[in-house]
């Protein structure tokens, strides 16, 4: 977490943040001028600052789906390992799918949160360009999904709840991934996650990209951060297929209903986690606290059920999803 919090920040400004940044710059300029000239501008500054706060509220509570995607993909957005380090008392990363590979795009291990042993795993994006290339921007390979399954089996054997973090543009699309059975690896997880006895809580922390997200996304609870997105297909792909025009991605993002609020309305999302104003990256520690509280709340609830009750509810949760009409025959 430390590098996110303390490192000298290059201003990764998103388009919609620019008016805000300009205002904040102006406040800074006025303050400097006032100090140089020995003028008291406290009142004016206070006014401008409250205006800036208002503007920040305004901007971040009216983001379009396309803007939320920008936030979800923000290079400073906290990643799986950031959250794990922030919320756990103890943590040890475990490696390998026991079948010849260790995918750095999907990480996991054992640890504890508030004294409870858990298995945590998730997609891992890189912290810089080099890291991102190694981790393929969080696009997991079949070996990644198999490592995840191996860790989940481990959790089930030792009665540890499973906590997954979803943050991927999608499963890795490459010749090798196909050769090693990307489809089979994801499919296997979808089925087996219904078999596991232990509680499973899945949280979309950034991008939930299609089958690559769902491959570690079957659980008793689905949580999602306010500015995260979860999509059936990337808006870019959707635009080029349905609109035959990749530049229509913002329209596709709108039409696909990908925001946390949309998913809540569709009955897919259980808990929408509010982010600090300015997005998760503006205050990673506060964001992690929000996440930890939510996880503990759901863990407590789920731990009060028996294994069979929980599995039945997990089944019913997904069984209900879908919208159709039925004419009597």
């Amino acid at each position: 977490m430390s590098n996110v919090v303390t490192s000298e920040r290059k201003p990764y400004l998103l388009d919609f943040e620019k008016p805000l940044a300009e205002l904040e710059n102006r406040i800074e300029q006025i303050r400097e001028l006032a100090t140089e000239n020995g003028v008291d501008v406290t009142d004016q500054i206070r006014q401008l600052e409250s205006r800036a706060l208002e503007l920040r509220h305004e901007i971040f509570s009216n983001l379009s789906p396309a803007q939320k995607i920008q936030l979800a993909r923000h290079p400073r957005r906290p990643s799986t390992l950031d959250y794990i380090q922030a919320i756990s008392d103890e943590w040890m990363e475990l490696h390998g799918d026991r079948n010849s590979s260790d995918d750095p795009a999907l990480v996991g291990g054992v640890g504890s949160i508030a004294g409870r042993p858990v298995v945590m795993l998730g997609h891992q994006k890189g912290r810089d360009t080099k890291d991102n290339v190694a981790r393929r921007f969080g696009m997991a390979s079949p070996g990644g999904y198999r490592k995840a399954m191996r860790l989940m089996e481990h959790a089930d054997r030792f009665g540890m709840p499973i906590i997954t973090f979803i943050d991927t543009p999608g499963a890795w699309a490459g010749v090798e991934a196909e050769q090693l059975g990307q489809g089979e690896a994801i499919a296997y997880n979808l089925r087996e996650m219904f078999r596991l006895d232990v509680p499973i809580i899945c949280t979309v922390i950034g991008e939930g990209g299609s089958g690559g997200a769902l491959g570690i996304g079957v659980g008793d609870r689905l949580l999602m951060f306010e500015h995260s997105v979860y999509t059936v297909a990337s808006p870019e792909a959707c635009a080029s297929i349905l609109w035959k025009d990749a530049t229509k991605a913002p329209q596709a993002a709108e039409a696909l209903k990908i925001t946390a609020t949309d998913l809540k309305n569709l009955g897919i999302l259980d808990d929408l986690l509010t982010e600090p104003i300015g997005g998760a990256h503006s205050d990673p520690l506060k964001t992690a606290t929000i996440l930890k509280q939510a996880l503990l709340h759901h863990l407590t609830e789920l731990s009060q059920m028996t294994n069979s009750e929980r599995r039945e509810l997990r089944y019913q949760k997904f069984r209900r999803i879908g919208v159709f009409m039925e004419l009597s025959a």
Binding site: A187, S210, I258, G322
Partner: peptide
């Protein structure tokens, strides 16, 4: 049908 379609995979 957006995310409703994706969830059919799990169902």
């Amino acid at each position: 049908e957006g995310m409703l379609s994706l969830m059919q995979m799990a169902k």
